[in-house]
Design a protein around this nucleic acid. Sequence first.
DNA 1: TGCAAATGGTTTCATATGAAACTATAAAGG
DNA 2: CCTTTATAGTTTCATATGAAACCATTTGCA
Lengths: 153, 153
Amino acid sequence: MSVKRKPTPATAEHAPLQLEHFLPYRLSILSNTISQAIADDYQQRYDLSVTEWRVMAVLARFEGLSAREVAERTAMDKVAVSRALARLAEAGRVSRGMHDNDKRRSVLDLTEAGWAIHDEVAPMARAREREVLARLDAEERAWLTRILDKLLS
Amino acid sequence: MSVKRKPTPATAEHAPLQLEHFLPYRLSILSNTISQAIADDYQQRYDLSVTEWRVMAVLARFEGLSAREVAERTAMDKVAVSRALARLAEAGRVSRGMHDNDKRRSVLDLTEAGWAIHDEVAPMARAREREVLARLDAEERAWLTRILDKLLS
DNA sequence: TGCAAATGGTTTCATATGAAACTATAAAGG
DNA sequence: CCTTTATAGTTTCATATGAAACCATTTGCA
């Protein structure tokens, strides 16, 4: 049994944060919990990291992106994208063409194998999202969307 | 100027995720953006990592915790806590006593120096939180609290 | 043109991280 | 008791990560 710990006395001149009511902390816990649950679904099964999956998801949505564009769309570091692409190309999940008018740029696409994995993972990810949203009622879901739109804009 | 990329045609048999509307992804972006903004405030200035700050925040709130209890309260890995504590103790920001009845357990507290840092960082963290919340109106803030309570419970 | 600055992408290096093994102590059961 | 099992915490090892340096190419402009 865990002993109840006494909080710092109210007489203290310090004003400690209450992490459990602190927005950034709560968002961090929630985000990590959800992302981890999804990752657990595919990570070992497909030998696919979270960054790799995000790259694949973007390439499923937009064909022929460059690495830089992928980084933009995923909000990931360009180094992370470069490494994810190296692994994905190595595994034959992504093809890297060369841009016609700019030899620096790559032209990225999912391969057949990439699409096959995408088509299995995407529904799992969506299912997890639904599980989370199912804990809210319709009104709460609408507010959540609106609030996230505002904070992310 | 960035070229508009064509999404995968609607005729495609695949159903790509739209990351920009995908809850886990949006939460992750929001959480990272906010946490990073706060970390930028203290990281270099106090040579303090995010994990170290979280440990300090918990010790400010609850005195005499053990390392395990800190890990529980921060939702951090025990290895991460162990390392954060090593650095904090080394820097004289946290004291590690030994538990009377259990020589395995440590008894952790902020030192004077630790409190001094806490008392500077905590207000900065709170200010950042206020900045974020200020982008919402009162009704939205209330819903956000309610939604997070529900999803985190 | 031709050269400086910018851009796409990769590599290097130093640091961060987590799982598993490990040490020390405590609790539980025969 | 004394042996097994559990717990607190640290260390090790292998991997992940990001900043900065780097290479190649392209762009801007004198």
